[in-house]
Amino acid sequence: MVVENKLETGREVPAVPTSARALTVVPLKYPGRWVLAIVILVLLALLVRAFVVADIDYSAVVEYLTVPGILEGVRNTLLLLLLSMALGLVLGVLTAVMRQSPNPVLRWVGGGYVWLFRGTPLLVQLLIWFNLAIIFNTFTIPGLVSMPMNALMTPFVAALLGLGINEGAYISEIVRGGILSVDHGQREAASAIGMPRAKIMRRIVLPQAMRVIIPPLGNEFIACLKFTSLAYTISFSELLHSANKIYTANFKVIELLFTVTIWYLALTTVFSVLQQMLEDRLGRSAPGSRPSFARRLRKNLALRRTA
C-alpha cells in the first residue's frame, strides 16, 4: 500500500520508517535570552565595580551600624513608628466606623478628616505641628492642664502627632474598604441571633475585614517606617537625624547614608516577614490557605526535604 507522505504544510515525513516510540522531541533554542542575560549581568557588574572602586570607606559603613548614636536613632525610629501606627490605627478604625454611621454629622466629620490630612503633604503637616507654639503659646484644658506649648510640642510629640494623624487618614480608607467587603448577610445573621450592633462590628465584621485590611496595612506600616525619616526636618533624633549628626562632624556622608540604608532595609524586611506570617494566620478560614510561613521556612531550610 502506498502512503501519501506529503503533509498539508508541504513538509515531507521521512520515508525511513521509524518506530514512533523512538522519536525524541528537540526543544527550541532561545539564543536571545542568553544574550540579554549576559548583557544585563555585565551592566550589573560594571555598576558594582563603580561602587567598589569609588572612594567609599566600606569598613566604616559596617562599623557605624552598631555605634551608640545610630542604635539610639534606630530605637527612636521604631518608637515613633510603633506609636504613630498605634495612633493611626485607633483614629483610622474610629473614622472608618464613623463614616458608616447613620448620624450625618459623624459621617461628615470623618470624611472631612480624611480629606484634610490625605490632601496635604506630610512634611507640611509636621512643620505645622512643630511650629504650633507660634500661634498658641499655651496649651490649656480648662481645670485640668495648662502648660506652655513649647514644652508640650517637643520634636517627638510633633512627629508623633504628624505621622499618626496622617496615617489615620489613610488607614481609615483601608479599614472602610475592608468593612465594605464583608457581605451584608453576615450582619443580618448576627442580628438574627440577637447580637448588639457594637458586638457585630467587633466580633463578626472587623475580623473578616482583617483579611482585606492586612495586606495594605502592612504596606502602610512599611511606608510609615520610611516616613519617620521626615521627622529629621523637625530635629527629632530618629535614624537619619542621628546619622546626620555624625556625618556633619566627620564628613563620612555617603558611608553613614549607606549605614542608614542598611538599617532601613533590614527593618522593612523584618516587617515584611511579620506581615506574611500574619496573613497566613488570618488566611486559615479561606480556601487555598497554605501552611504557615514559619513551617514553610523550616521545611525549606531542612537539609533533606520531606513531604
Partner: peptide, 11 residues
Amino acid sequence: MVFQHFNLFGH
C-alpha cells in the same frame, strides 16, 4: 432565622 444564602460566619 435561616437565610437563603446561609450567611454562616466565614471566619
